[in-house]
Design a protein around this nucleic acid. Structure first.
Lengths: 357, 357
DNA sequence: GAAATTAATACAATCGATTGTATATTTGTG
DNA sequence: CACAAATATACAATCGATTGTATTAATTTC
């Protein structure tokens, strides 16, 4: 690897001190216009690029925030990242992104790496099933701002931007009940994850509110991935008699997998025989037929809010300790998978959207 | 922000020199076991974390590679990133990811930032429609390895990992022709982008080979995004009489949008009245009904290969100049959108998969 | 036991940029 | 013109870690 151009090279060539070069490059008023021009011209000519390692080391600031999410490919997260990048760009911060693949050890490793790289702040949507965020202590102990988004730890005193999972799950379940589906089950994920716990609560509350019988067997907890969902629905169809007339899934990918399975391998029609709902509004949920009723989480907004909160924390070291939680509104998106075509609510506003809070 | 623990803090407390602390932390044989243990224990106790800015500055190595893609949410890219991360982890390299949103200025900005952060190598899938990679010169001039993947510049002497776009497009078009679709059109993107140019070539070659008439009107070039595709198909259905009986789309998202549109707003049935094919095998392409015939690009493999190539370049400074191009095999995935259910090829192997190259 | 090795640690320079202080030069003021 | 103020630049320390060289202490060898 070749030696890169440094301010010292520029200084030597121009016969001036490197401090003057540095100030010229930073457009300081302490350098004369002629010298400044000479420096800038030469820098351009030689392709000088500031060494951020040196610069950041000296200034103790990297103007960089780290973002760690479970899967960058999930629509929710990639949209959120768009929002984060927007907010960061507004304040001239760089963003570095990494994914944990929902693997706690990987998350820990990434976070340590980011700490060692001295990022100015961290945005994290943590691995599911990790009840406490102790690995974040390097950041917290060193007073480097951290903001969690979407996923979070129930008791940790960390800034966060979240949705009202309980409420959203309540509303989507209520929607099913009002549309005549009364024999519901709930497909949920790891109950150590707050978001799934809350969604289950919402489901249960809706059942209870409408005086339907709640039984533990109505709740099935599995890793919320497509193949697991297929295993689940396969067994359900074989064994369960009568079948439930509605499944409230805690995410979209499982809902989609179930719909695909039912269509390809059974006579069960969605929504006539069974309604299906998801959670997150992945793009594929409006590709499938019938389209999937789901909850939109305003991912872009959420990312932007979380980033703003983080940047505020970074720039005002003082009130950093005032931990806050921002709750982002969600939207129920009613689509074909949950309304029998004859139904009134359905025909009236087939693609109804309802803000939940 | 609090002062972070440094090797000098550890040195002062233990009454030894910071160089000894450094060597102890790096498990050098030049430090006695007792001292080593004392250092390690204290480091743990105080939560010491190496400052990579300082370390990398001194060693002139960051053990980090940068990855820049147009959209991290596209299945192809996120899978490729998985492959990259795997290959990098094998060699203890960190990966930082950024997305250009297919915006050249943003890409340039990101790349400059990565250069200033002194990454050891760059993996890039560049913005479409930028015919030359001059902004990569900072890297090339400084002999920092760059590997392009999927998208590339036609004439640049840069290592790359690509697919045989022409061949793949030829095969998918040929597949349509063999299945009785002979009045085909091609929906393509920006012709400054090599990949789309090659796909068009492949389309044209197949048409020619089977002695079908080729007319320029058969090719439609638009920004390959869903809403643009809907505009296109809307006008096509209105104006064109007779309609083509097949559309070869240069990517999946436009193919999906077209299928959705036809199903919701017209009587045109896929594939009976019109076959549709895509390119890239996005997850939604197997969610839609009928499922979408498309080309799989072995994205994970491609990412891994590209990363390996990059890491090899990084670790052997000598033969860096031997530019090479690796071509990854593609697979034709035949699904429902291109085979009339009565057709023989269809019934024989409905979900046929064919390696192309 | 004295000289020669080896082991363990200290000293000091360095990576590239920033920044407070000092110095030299120019300009302005009465 | 002499002195103060402003301008332009140089000097030197610093950020935190690494690393070549020097020094001291401990061990081995004959």
């Amino acid at each position: 690897m070749k030696k890169k151009v440094t301010i010292h090279d520029l200084a030597r060539i121009l016969n001036i001190d490197s401090s003057t070069v540095s100030r010229a490059l930073n457009d300081s008023s302490r350098v004369g216009v002629i010298t400044k021009k000479k420096v800038l011209d030469l820098a351009k000519e030689l392709g000088y690029q500031r060494n951020l390692l040196a610069s950041n080391l000296r200034t103790n600031k990297t103007m960089t925030i780290g973002v760690v999410v479970p899967f960058i490919s999930r629509h929710f997260f990639s949209e959120a990242i768009d929002g984060i990048e927007q907010a960061a760009a507004d304040k001239n911060y760089r963003v570095i992104i990494a994914q944990s693949n929902d693997d706690f050890e990987k998350e820990k490793h990434i976070i340590e790496g980011m700490f060692m790289s001295r990022i100015d702040g961290l945005l994290l949507s943590p691995t599911l099933g990790t009840p406490s965020g102790e690995h974040l202590n390097i950041f917290l102990d060193n007073e480097i701002p951290v903001v969690l988004f979407d996923r979070y730890y129930e008791n940790a005193r960390i800034n966060k931007v979240i949705i009202e999972d309980r409420n959203a799950a309540f509303t989507i379940t209520e929607h099913l009940i009002k549309n005549g589906f009364k024999n519901l089950i709930h497909l949920t994920g790891n109950q150590d994850a707050v978001i799934y716990k809350k969604r289950l609560q919402g489901f249960k509350e809706a059942i209870t509110k409408y005086n339907l019988p709640f039984k533990e067997e109505m709740v099935h907890s599995i890793p919320l991935l497509p193949d697991q969902a297929i295993n689940f629905i396969e067994k359900l169809v074989e064994s369960s008699d009568p079948l439930p007339d509605g499944i409230v899934c805690a995410n979209d990918v499982t809902a989609l997998a179930i719909m695909k399975y039912l269509d390809a391998n059974t006579d069960v029609k969605v929504p006539e025989d069974m309604a299906i709902t998801g959670f997150s509004n992945e793009p594929a949920s409006s590709i499938i037929k019938p389209e999937l009723t789901t909850v939109d989480q305003h991912s872009y907004e959420m990312g932007r809010k979380a980033a703003r909160m983080l940047l505020d924390s970074i720039e005002s070291n003082d009130d950093y300790l005032s931990r806050q939680t921002v709750v982002v509104r969600t939207r129920l998106i009613v689509r074909g998978s949950s309304v029998k075509s004859s139904k009134s609510e359905a025909s009236l506003d087939k693609f109804a959207v309802k803000e939940i809070f």
